[in-house]
């Protein structure tokens, strides 16, 4: 993976609108889908059209004759809810239990994550709801603007969960500042911290820990050490007790 491979293609509204019917069906190739998703957060008119096609895609199954599931499958599902269901264990902290700084950080992280996955539909609402996040969100938006670049990190086996793969990307804004974003990890009632490192050959140098919150996502600013300005590899690992680190995501920085 290289920075360039993730550089977003800029599209006009007409080019985006032409692709939205196929985008709603998940039929675009990765480059085109990324370009469409980069455009949508910045263009309310195209967002409106996108939602219409998504609504059509979501309604098409209603044309089918419903099929009653096996009652045993429902019973099994209800049993599975009892066995380690994170949702049931998640207790949202009361507002007063969270510092204003942390709330701002979580909101900003949510904003950048939503933008990163093409979900800019919500950014304006988030900002409106929390005026104090406006400045931070605007700053973070630099990392997912068309002038920014991103590098997708390869997910390792340990990042495959029941619901699919976790994902991680490193964003770089035009000023050269970098932000690591991880999402799709197991939700947790307590903040989980994953070590982040860079490597030259087999020598790994820790950069710090990325904090994963109750929504299974997290972000951190990344600065390479002065003596390793151009590392060969960037990685996110997982620590389980005294066991050796297990790699979750690896990014090849040599491209």
């Amino acid at each position: 993976m290289t920075w360039q491979s993730e550089t977003l293609i800029e599209m006009t509204c007409a080019e985006v609108e032409e692709r939205l019917p196929l985008h709603a069906l998940g039929l675009l190739d990765a480059d085109e889908a990324a370009a469409v998703e980069a455009h949508l957060p910045l263009c309310p008119a195209c967002q409106s059209v996108a939602v219409q096609f998504e609504a059509v895609a979501g309604a098409m199954p209603l044309a089918l004759d419903p099929i009653a599931p096996d009652p045993a499958m429902r019973a099994q599902l209800m049993d599975r809810l009892d066995s380690g269901a994170p949702s049931a264990q998640v207790t949202k902290l009361p507002p007063t239990a969270m510092s204003p700084f942390r709330r701002l950080g979580l909101l900003a992280a949510a904003a950048v994550l939503l933008l990163a996955i093409g979900g800019g539909f919500w950014i304006n609402r988030l900002i409106d709801e929390r005026d104090e996040a406006r400045t931070t969100a605007a700053m973070l938006q630099e990392f997912v603007s068309p002038n920014a670049v991103a590098m997708a990190m390869a997910p390792m086996a340990a990042s495959e969960y029941d619901w699919g793969w976790g994902t991680s990307r490193l964003f770089k804004n035009p000023a050269g500042e970098m932000m690591l974003v991880v999402e799709g990890c197991p939700p947790t009632t307590e903040e989980r911290r994953y070590p982040v490192w860079v490597a030259m050959g087999d020598d790994r140098t820790p950069l710090g820990d990325i904090a994963i919150g109750e929504d299974g996502s997290g972000w951190m600013m990344v600065t390479f050490p002065a003596d390793i300005p151009a590392p060969e590899q960037l990685g996110v690992s997982m620590r389980e007790g005294e066991a050796p680190l297990v790699d979750l995501f690896l990014g090849d920085m040599t491209g």
């Binding site: 998504e54 609504a55 979501g58 309604a59 809810l81 994170p86 949702s87 539909f121 929504d215 299974g216």
Partner: peptide, 17 residues
């Protein structure tokens, strides 16, 4: 059940999502 917050009502109707 595990990740109910993946649905955002601002994205449209729950059924379609």
């Amino acid at each position: 059940w595990q990740r109910p917050h993946t649905y955002d009502s601002q994205r449209g109707a729950f059924g379609g999502w």
